[in-house]
Simulated assay, not measured.
Amino acid sequence: MRRADHHPSRRSFLDVTGAMMATGLTAGLTAGCASDSAGPDRHAAAPATTTTTTTSPEPVPATGRHQAGITLPQPAQPHLLAVVADLGAAVAPGPLLAELGEAIRALTAGDDPRLLGLPPGDLTVTVGVGPRLVRAVGASLPGAAGLPRFSRERIDSRARGGDLLIQLCAGDPLLLPVAASALLAQAGDRVRERWRQSARRGANVSVGDGRTAPRNPLGFIDGIIGPHTDAEQRRDLWLAGPPAVAGGTLAVLRRMELDLPRFAALSVAGQEAVFGRRRADGVPLSGGAADSSPELGAKTPDGRYLVPADAHARRAHATAVGVGLMLRRSYSIDEPAPGLLFACFQNDLRTFTATLTHMETSDALLPFTTTTASATFLILPGFDRRRPLGSRLFG
């Protein structure tokens, strides 16, 4: 994570980008990514080399009713970079967001020279605004409320809240710091970065009905239950109104440290009791298939719940809490400490706050977590050439 305590200069962005590109390149080569470097000198004795080619992922349209990077593409790209920033007190959000939208269109189309020749592939950029900016338009608008404080938090003041979220996702991790640098350079001294987090998703596992879900850093399949159908997404994910926010959604971003050694010391049965699902295939302890909803009333012959009373699958279950579904994403992180970056999207912030409040009373998973960054954002409705990014809210 890189924190900025001053207005960064254009030169500092380039310096940081260069360092991050070098790191990303090393990681990409380690992972077996193809290289465009020149072959060996024809006149020198050298071992034969093999050129590996990869199929470029399908591009994801940046424009439309909803912003890309939430339900599209499917499955979600494996790499993410989240950048959280503040706007200067005198900065008008409308013009800034419109500029960012144009830059996003150019970046995802491969038309921005600041990509330094990198193909954009499946790059998506998703932009959200924080409660301070939303309240300035209307105190009753979705997204105007911030998050309350919860237990098991150890959050520095600069890692709580924020005015602007830029979420970048791609199959190629090298794209992310380069695209982020271009967008921050576009914003210039109108924004000041609070914190950023690079993260990656685990390998996808089939969970039925043609869908997949990744494993989280604790080894369990994550994000199985959610608003996956169009009807569920209309009901629980997308904002229907008022017109200024229709087509947007509400995001919660939480960075957590995980006590991996203590969790790993549990038996497999103990780990499964924490989650309420089998580790190998994600099937609920009450039976069924991976995408089955846990049967919370199912018991053993001697009267014990098959899904333990404090299991995460029970405590976070939408029916048990009395809320709608949330679209959940968990990403593994190495810095500043091993853990995960949790993101969820819903059309009612209470879906998240009520769920976490319910978990705090007796969720067996929470003792293995410590939250170190937290924020909520209104993800703006989609945009196009006729309706710039943010124009419905700040026009």
Results as ranks from 00 to 15, higher is better:
L87I: 07
F263S: 04
G226A: 06
L349G: 05
A318M: 00
R114M: 11
W238I: 00
H66Y: 13
I379N: 03
E232F: 10
A62E: 05
G101H: 07
L133D: 01
S56Y: 11
E99L: 12
I379C: 14
L327Q: 15
T52H: 13
F368I: 01
M21V: 13
S157E: 14
M359L: 00
A185P: 06
A240V: 09
D163T: 00
S157C: 12
A289V: 12
Q74K: 13
E99F: 10
P120F: 06
F150I: 08
A19K: 12
S374H: 13
D172L: 06
L141T: 00
V307F: 01
T23N: 11
R65V: 12
L266F: 04
A34K: 02
R114N: 10
F220Q: 04
A337Q: 12
G208L: 03
Q74S: 13
V134K: 07
R328N: 09
L253N: 01
Q346I: 04
V16S: 13
H7G: 10
A159L: 12
A246T: 14
L96G: 01
A90I: 02
T370W: 00
G202Y: 04
P261S: 04
F150K: 10
L250C: 00
Q197D: 04
Y305C: 10
G18C: 11
A48Q: 13
L237F: 09
G282R: 02
G64A: 11
L218G: 02
L116N: 01
P308Q: 05
L184G: 08
P381S: 04
T249W: 10
L239C: 10
A85V: 04
P95R: 07
G101Q: 09
R234T: 05
A38N: 00
R279V: 00
T50L: 15
A290R: 03
R234S: 14
L218E: 01
L296K: 00
F345R: 03
V60M: 06
P242Q: 08
G297F: 15
L81M: 09
A364K: 03
S12H: 13
T361L: 09
T351I: 02
L115S: 08
H79Y: 14
R132H: 11
